[in-house]
Each structure stands twice: as structure tokens, then as C-alpha cells.
Amino acid sequence: MSTKNTDFKNIERTAKNREKTWKIITYVLLTFWALIVLFPFYWMVLTSVKSYGAYNAEYIPQLYTLAPTLQNYVDAFTAVPLAKYFLNTIIFTVITTLIMLMVTVFAAFAFARLEFRGRNLLFTLFLALMMIPNELVIITNFVTITNLGLRNTFTGLILPSITSVFYIYLLKENFEQVPDELYKAAKVDGTSDLKYLFKVLIPICQPTIVTITILKVIECWNSYVWPRLITDSPTYFLVSN
């Protein structure tokens, strides 16, 4: 009887030890990758507060600085009109994201809730469009925008960046998860589709909509190829140019 008892304890102990080892390995690996992720950021901040001379004089790069300076930030804003670029990027991002949200919400709603002929066919076509690489269409869009005389304008920057099948798809999946009963109840009450969309669906699916907004803002903020093609006047440069 007693031997059995200790056996159980032994088993319990080894199991606990094993659990502990797993945990330690996990933490070590995760911390390792976290360091790799964080290091470039640390480096960026560090270099940004080093003076130019100090940065160049280092044969062996130093991981700390004794004389931090903000001069580089001042220079960045005075050497090129960086403030203007920032403003441009913000305008571009806000307008694009707002229009994109409207277009996406309406399209997703139509696909998720409204019945019409050819819905599935149209949706499949939309999905097929997802596969086309952006760079493929960039050539024609460049020509189209140039022909419309929209180079170096915000309209030209914004128009092609609006639609994203990826987000329509994501939001449609989310809309469909909302129980059908709510829609029917709203119909019985005589609520219009538009009112149902804004009063019921959008509040319920808020997390997804917020996610889409954040993703789109990041995408706009980081876009490089299209802005570089379509603007050659510094008045419309974005930060990444």
C-alpha cells in the first residue's frame, strides 16, 4: 500500500518537473525571438539620438550612448519638409480608410444578408480578384490616372487604394455569424435594411471593423510603390518617399 503511494508521488513529481522544463524552454525561446524583434527598434531609437560624428567615428558600433542628442530630429524636419510629408500621409490615410470602410461595409452587407440572383457567382469572382497581385494592375492604373490628369493629386493617390476584396471577405464572414433572427425581427418591426445595418450589424461587428480600420491605416501609412509612381512633385510626397 505504502509503495503504491510513493509511486503516485513520484509520478506526480516527474510530471510536474516535465511541465516546468517545458515552460522554461517556452519562455527562453519566446524571449529569444522577442529580443530579435525588439533589437532593430532599439537600434533605430539609439541611432536617432546619436550625433552624426559619434555615429561615424565608431569602428565598433556601441550599444549605448553617453551623449544623447535630439539634433537629428530637428534636422530631419528642416532638411526635407518632413512635417509636410507627415501631413500628406495623414490626409491620404484618413480619406482612403474612410471611403474604404464605407465601400467594404456596403458590399459585405449585400453579400451576407441580401438575396439576389448571381450572388454566389459574383462572390466567387470577387475571390478570384484577391489572387491578382497588385503589381500586375499597377501599370494600367498608372496609365489611367495619368490620362485622367490625376498625377500628383490626392485623388490619384487615393482612388486605386480604396477597394480591398480581402476586407470585404473578412467582414462578410463576420456579418454572417450574426444570428438570422435579428434580421427577421428587424424586418417584422419594419426596420429598413440601411437602419438595420447601422443600428444592429455594425455595432455587433465592431471588433472586426476596428481591426480592418487598423490594418488599412497601417497599409496606407506604409504604402510605397504606388505613391512613388504617382507623385513626382514633393508637394504630394508621403513620409516613405
Partner: peptide, 15 residues
């Protein structure tokens, strides 16, 4: 769907 189709046609399908 009109806005989405319009933009997609102009900047994805036509190209």
C-alpha cells in the same frame, strides 16, 4: 455593391 464593383472594375478588372 455598386461602389465596390465600380472600383474593382476600374482598378482591377480593366487593368
Amino acid at each position: 455593391l455598386l461602389p465596390a464593383i465600380l472600383f474593382l472594375t476600374a482598378f482591377m478588372v480593366y487593368p
